[in-house]
Amino acid sequence: MKIGRNMKCWCDSGKKYKHCHYGRDSEKSITKGEAITHSNKIAQRKCCYVPDALKEECSKKIINAHTISKSGSLIAIADSTNHVLGLKINLSNLFKSEGKLVLEKIGVNQASTFKGFCSHHDKSLFSCVEDQPFANEEDQCFALMYRSVAKELYAKEGSVISSELLKQGDKGKQPIEQFFIQKFAANNQLGVQTAIDELSEFKSKLDEQLQGHTTNEMCHLILESSAPIPVVVSSIVAPITDFNGNLIQDLGDLSVVPEYLVFNSFSSDGKGYAVLSWLKGESIAQGFIETLLVSAKEELFTKLVRFFYGVAENTFTSPAWWDSLSEPQKKKVENLIMSGVNPFEFEVESLLIDDGIRFTGWEVENITKINF
C-alpha cells in the first residue's frame, strides 16, 4: 500500500507519514543500552499517591517506600546477610535471563520499594502497620490495602510510558514487521490504560474512606499464625478463576468492570499474617474467598503459595524456606512465577487447582472475618 508523504501515518500517531514511518526500515534500531536506560528512568519516577485534597500536606521529599515492612517482615525472613529472594524485573535482567523470571537475592533495603509517597504521608498513612504490632484492626487492614493499590498504579503507569518505547522498536524493520509491532503496542497500551482507569476508580473508593467520607466499605479476611510467614507479598488482582478452576471474570472483555482483591502477607511481632481485602458487596471477590476457605486450615498455606506466586510479582521468599523445598516443589513455584508470561502455554483454569504438591512451613491457626 502506498501512502502519500503528507497523509496521516497508518500507525495512528496523528503525525504525517513523512514525519513518522516514512523510511523507518532504514533507521537505526534501538539498542539494548537505550532500552535499559529508558527502563531505569521509568523506575525512578517520583510522586505521592494521596488524593488531590491532601497533596497540599505533602513534604518535598519522595522516599523509597516499602510496600512490605522491612523491619517486621523482610528482616524476619532474610538470611544472615539480610537478603531475601525475589524477582528483579527490569530490562537488564530480562536480557540476561532471556526473558525468564527467576528468584534472585535482593537486599531488604531494596526489596519491595517504590517512589510513590512523600515522607510525610508515608509516615502518617502507614505508621499504624509500620510502628505498631498488627492487631487485626480495620485501619491497619485499610492501610495495607491503600499501599498495595498505589504500588500497582505506579507500576501500570510505568507500563504506559514503556509502551511508547515499544512503538519505537520497529525502527530498522520491514513494513510488515512494523505493522505487527505497532499493532501489538497499541493493543498493549489499550489494555494497560483500561487497567489504570479501573484501578483509579477502585482507588477513588479508598480515597473516599481515607478522607472520612465513607466508612466500613471494605471486607477483610485475616489468616494468622504464631510463626512468621516465609512468603511475603503485597499486591492486587482481579482474579480470573477461583480455587476450583471456575472462570469467574472474563478480563478479555474490556466492557467488563472487574472486581479486585487486595492481598498482603507479612510478619509482625513474631507472628505471621495473610490479609485479603475487597470492596463490600462484591460477590465475585466474596465467592473467590469462599473457595479458599472450604479447605482445612492445614491446606490453606499451599493455596496461598499457588495464589501469591501465580498472580503477583511483588512477592519475596525466605531463603531458608526455599532451600528446604524439594525439587518438585521448587519446580512448581518456578512454573507459577512464569504463569501468564507466555499466553500460548498458560492454562488459566489450572492455575489455582490442587495438583497434589503440598507446601509446609506455615500453618494458619486463627481466621478473622471483618465486615462479612
Rank of each mutant, 00 (worst) to 15 (best):
M1P: 06
K2H: 15
G4L: 08
K8R: 12
S13V: 11
G14I: 08
G14P: 03
H21V: 00
E27W: 02
I30F: 11
T31W: 08
H38D: 04
S39I: 09
K41C: 10
Q44E: 14
Q44A: 10
C47N: 14
V50C: 02
V50T: 05
P51D: 04
P51A: 06
L54F: 02
E57P: 01
E57M: 13
S59W: 04
S59D: 05
I62F: 05
I63C: 11
I63M: 12
I68R: 03
S71G: 05
L74G: 05
A78Y: 06
V84N: 05
G86I: 02
I89Q: 10
N90D: 15
N93W: 01
K96Y: 06
G99L: 05
L103M: 12
L103T: 02
I106G: 04
Q110S: 14
S112I: 07
C118L: 08
H120D: 04
D131R: 13
Q132Y: 15
A135R: 13
A135M: 15
D139C: 07
Q140A: 11
C141L: 11
F142C: 02
S162P: 03
S162M: 12
L166Y: 08
L166I: 12
K167I: 12
D170S: 12
K173P: 00
I181E: 07
F184C: 12
T194S: 15
L199P: 00
L199N: 00
F202S: 07
K203H: 03
S204L: 14
L206H: 10
L206E: 04
H213N: 13
H213D: 07
T215K: 13
E217V: 09
I222G: 04
L223P: 08
L223R: 09
I229Y: 13
I229N: 12
V232N: 03
V232H: 04
V233W: 05
V237N: 08
A238T: 09
I240Y: 02
I240F: 02
F243A: 09
N246Q: 14
L247Q: 12
I248M: 14
V257M: 01
V257I: 10
P258V: 06
Y260E: 04
L261F: 06
F263L: 11
N264P: 00
S267V: 10
S267Y: 07
S268V: 03
G270V: 09
K271S: 15
V275M: 08
S277F: 08
G281V: 08
S283A: 11
A285Y: 00
I289K: 03
I289C: 12
L292T: 11
E299I: 09
T302L: 10
F308S: 13
A312E: 11
N314V: 02
N314D: 13
S318D: 04
S326V: 03
P328W: 05
N335S: 15
M338W: 12
M338I: 01
G340W: 03
V348A: 11
S350A: 15
I353E: 15
I353F: 09
G356R: 05
W362P: 01
E363F: 03
I367D: 11
K369V: 07
K369N: 03
I370S: 13
N371K: 14
F372G: 08
